[in-house]
Structures are given as structure tokens and as C-alpha cells.
């Protein structure tokens, strides 16, 4: 049984990482919320458009943003640029459907840290989120 649980990852002060989930589909957000809880994080906020994401980011200052690539009003890619502009340390991970590779590349060039492809495979996603967080941790140490 132990093998099935995925280790929880927390900040240095052992408080949980706070996530902002951005996706226009509620179902997708729920799904991703599951992954967040699996690594012991909390969902600090949700947004369903790029514009909303920017506002929410200002408001709650999450540790990590999980951002869908294509959304109404403002595309995820543009939101990435705007968020990074405001907060250079923002940690954004793109969540994209297959076939959006050019957009994902653009998002990464704009400062997104990594990407996860939909349909999200839990273990894989956890692996990526964890590695991004660990890298952040390492950078903070330096």
C-alpha cells in the first residue's frame, strides 16, 4: 500500500504549496486539483480565463500556477507573459492538449517552467510538478 501513496512535498516551513488552477473546463480543474492534493498542495484559487488568472494571481500570490493553454478571452500564453512581467519568480506550468506544441514553446519562451499534456497522467504530472518545485527550492538555497 505504501508504494501507492505519492510522497507529499511541502515548503521549507512545512506549509503546503498553494496552487492557482487555470482552465476553462471545470472538469479539468477538478482533475488537476486531484493531483495537487496528491502531493499535499492546496488549491488557493481557480480561474477560467487568462484575464481572470492575472487578477487572481495578484490577489492570492500562489506558489504555482497550472495553466491551460487555450482559453477564451485571453490565451494562456499571453497570461504567462503578463504574470511573469509582474512577478519574475512566478512558477507556471502549462497544461496543454496534444498538438499545441507551438503555443507551448511560446509559453516556455515567455517563462513557463514546464508543461504537462492532457489527458493528464497522474504519476507523470506529479513527477513534473515535483521536479519544478524541487528546482525552485534549489534555486532559493543558492
Amino acid at each position: 500500500m505504501e508504494q501507492e501513496t505519492i510522497n507529499i512535498i511541502t515548503k521549507k516551513d512545512s506549509s503546503p504549496y498553494r496552487f492557482l488552477l487555470v482552465d476553462d473546463s471545470e472538469f479539468a480543474r477538478k482533475n488537476i486539483a486531484r493531483i495537487v492534493s496528491m502531493i499535499g498542495g492546496v488549491v488557493a484559487g481557480e480561474a477560467s480565463t487568462g484575464k481572470e488568472a492575472i487578477e487572481k494571481y495578484q490577489e492570492i500570490k500562489p506558489d504555482v500556477v497550472l495553466m491551460d493553454i487555450s482559453m477564451p478571452e485571453m490565451e494562456g500564453v499571453d497570461a504567462v507573459g503578463r504574470i511573469i512581467q509582474e512577478d519574475k519568480k512566478a512558477t507556471i506550468i502549462m497544461v496543454s492538449s496534444l498538438g499545441h506544441k507551438d503555443l507551448v514553446k511560446k509559453a516556455i519562451s515567455s517563462g513557463a517552467k514546464h508543461f504537462i499534456t492532457k489527458p493528464v497522467q497522474v504519476e507523470y504530472a506529479v513527477k513534473i510538478v515535483r521536479s519544478v518545485l524541487e528546482e525552485n527550492e534549489e534555486k532559493n538555497k543558492q
Binding site: 496543454s96 496534444l98 506544441k101 514553446k105 516556455i108 514546464h114 508543461f115 507523470y124
Partner: peptide
């Protein structure tokens, strides 16, 4: 093995 969108993956490595 699980990496999909290898073009993006390769892009990140290349970066």
C-alpha cells in the same frame, strides 16, 4: 517514455 510533445521537450533541452 511518457514524454509526449517531444518537440517541446527537445525545445526545452535545446534552450
Amino acid at each position: 517514455r511518457q514524454c509526449r510533445e517531444r518537440a517541446v521537450g527537445a525545445f526545452m533541452i535545446s534552450n
